[in-house]
Design a protein around this nucleic acid. Structure first.
Length: 265
DNA sequence: ATCCGATGTCAAT
DNA sequence: TTGACCTCGGATC
């Protein structure tokens, strides 16, 4: 479930729970040699930047990127099941990482180099949306492609892309340079709000109260990913607002969903 | 038992 | 634009 809110949530949990020495290991083995280098150290702070998570241990940090299928769970001590790339343990808590795209050690320079490649992250208070706007304004690419580009905006993924465009009534094919400034402001503001909610709740809920199925006289519905959404993965079903069939097409290699009526050019 | 897709990214065409 | 990679669970045979 890895869009940016997941990583920020994990960073918060790690900071709250992982105090004192941490047993760092790699039961599956692929991170074993590096794990040994920080094993037993105290965690000096976890931080998320877009979809990247850095778990600091002094001068070194474990750089984690979940990719499409990676998962990290933080639980009370229990017997891990399956392939565990990274395990962080104190007496009180255990974090288990499976299937990440990236899990490796970086020093401060390595970490700065990674961060330097990322656009502003709506979940960070130091984010500068004007940086994103400069790139959007200068691009002929469709806004649906730009929102997925981590060098433009860091942390939004396929669900937030579809949902924020729906909520702002933006045609996904609109080229960046044709996007009105006020619309960009609305998109950024909405992303900040939606993603903050995501960090708080651990789900992606985007449906306004007046459009929830219950309010519309329909049975409640929750997508597999665990939240209530307008269009994501609802191809062929009626739009929650106007009833038009939700469309689906591949944009930048990922399925994009939208309502052709609510998001008309 | 096997297949397929998934909230992502990179390298090779 | 496609394929590869990471792992798991639900759908399908």
């Amino acid at each position: 479930m890895p869009e940016g809110h997941v990583l920020h949530r994990l960073a918060g949990e790690l900071n709250a729970r992982f105090t004192g020495p941490v047993v760092v290991s790699s039961p599956q083995g692929r991170f074993r040699a590096e794990a040994a280098l920080v094993d037993g150290r105290e965690m000096t702070g976890a931080e998320a930047w877009g979809k990247h998570l850095f778990v600091g241990f002094g001068d070194l940090a474990v750089h984690i990127h979940l990719g499409l299928i990676g998962k990290m769970s933080i639980t009370r001590p229990a017997d891990p099941v399956g392939e565990v790339r990274l395990r962080l343990a104190t007496d009180e808590w255990v974090a288990v990482l499976r299937g990440p795209q990236t899990c490796r050690l970086v020093d401060d320079d390595g970490r700065q180099a990674l961060i330097a490649k990322l656009g502003p992250d709506p979940l960070r208070s130091d984010a500068d949306p004007a940086r994103a706007w400069r790139r959007i304004q200068a691009s002929d690419k469709p806004i649906a492609a730009l929102l997925m580009d981590q060098q433009v905006i860091a942390g939004a993924g396929n669900i937030y892309r579809a949902e924020v465009l729906f909520r702002s009534h933006v045609d996904p094919r609109t080229p960046g340079r044709r996007l009105p400034p006020a619309t960009w402001t609305a998109i950024w503001t909405d992303l900040v709000r939606l993603m903050r909610d995501g960090v708080r709740t651990g789900r992606i809920d985007t449906v306004r109260p007046e459009h929830t199925p219950t309010a519309m006289g329909r049975p409640p519905r929750v997508d597999d990913h665990g939240g209530e959404v307008y269009v994501y993965r609802r191809a062929g079903q009626p739009c929650l607002v106007c009833g038009t069939e939700v469309q689906c097409a591949s944009v930048v290699g990922r399925n994009l969903y939208w309502c052709p009526r609510c998001q008309a050019a």
